[in-house]
Amino acid sequence: MDVFMKGLSKAKEGVVAAAEKTKQGVAEAAGKTKEGVLYVGSKTKEGVVHGVATVAEKTKEQVTNVGGAVVTGVTAVAQKTVEGAGSIAAATGFVKKDQLGKNEEGAPQEGILEDMPVDPDNEAYEMPSEEGYQDYEPEA
């Protein structure tokens, strides 16, 4: 019985440690998101679009440190934060509304985080759909 109880105690310690790591990862992701939003706020009209992409990228980098179902929630929060940063930029006159959601080359930025393969159960990952990809044929 002692062996059984000791095993359960060790398992509990492992769960607590994993929860603490997840909590730490979420806190880091939130900190990076805040950094990115402050970065966007300090940019001029020309830099705002690039700044919004930076927020998304920093958040995406930190999301990889967070495991399990938390990833889905962090990704949703990050996307809403990026959308909010863009709205703030438009409201303050840093950028025109028609410039939001495009990178410096004018290509749409939507789907940055949505296409990231995420499995809350950590069982399997699927690649994003290939609808947006084109076949590449090298020139002879």
Rank of each mutant, 00 (worst) to 15 (best):
A69K: 09
K23S: 04
G93E: 05
A107Q: 05
N65E: 08
K60A: 14
F4I: 07
S42I: 13
E139F: 13
A17S: 08
I112C: 05
D135R: 06
S129N: 04
V118K: 09
G51Y: 13
S129W: 04
G84V: 14
P120H: 11
Y39Q: 03
E61M: 06
Q24H: 10
V95P: 06
K43E: 01
E139D: 08
E57G: 03
K43V: 14
S42C: 08
T72P: 02
G31V: 03
N122W: 08
D135P: 04
D2Y: 15
K23W: 15
V71Y: 08
T64K: 04
K12N: 01
V16C: 11
V26R: 00
K58L: 13
A69P: 03
V82Y: 11
V49I: 13
K12R: 13
G14E: 11
Y125W: 07
E28P: 01
K58Q: 05
T33A: 05
E28F: 04
E104D: 08
K96P: 05
K12W: 13
V82G: 02
K60S: 04
V49A: 12
K102S: 01
N122I: 08
E83F: 03
K23P: 00
E114P: 11
G47Q: 14
A140N: 12
S87L: 15
T92H: 03
Y136A: 05
K43D: 00
S42M: 11
K34Y: 14
A76T: 14
M5K: 10
A85Q: 03
K6M: 07
G106N: 04
E57D: 06
I112G: 10
L8R: 00
V52A: 08
K12T: 13
A69T: 07
V3R: 15
H50Q: 13
A107W: 09
K21L: 12
Q134R: 12
V48L: 13
T75E: 03
H50F: 09
G84C: 14
K6L: 07
V66A: 07
G73K: 12
A17P: 00
E20M: 09
E13T: 07
Q134S: 08
V37E: 00
E20N: 11
S129Q: 07
V48K: 01
G106L: 05
A76S: 07
A90I: 05
V66F: 11
E131Q: 07
I88F: 14
V95H: 07
T54S: 08
A17L: 05
G93M: 03
A85E: 02
S87N: 09
A76N: 11
D119A: 11
V82N: 03
G93R: 03
Q134Y: 08
E61D: 03
E35Y: 14
M127N: 09
M5R: 14
V74L: 15
V70D: 01
K96R: 07
A69M: 04
E110F: 07
A29K: 05
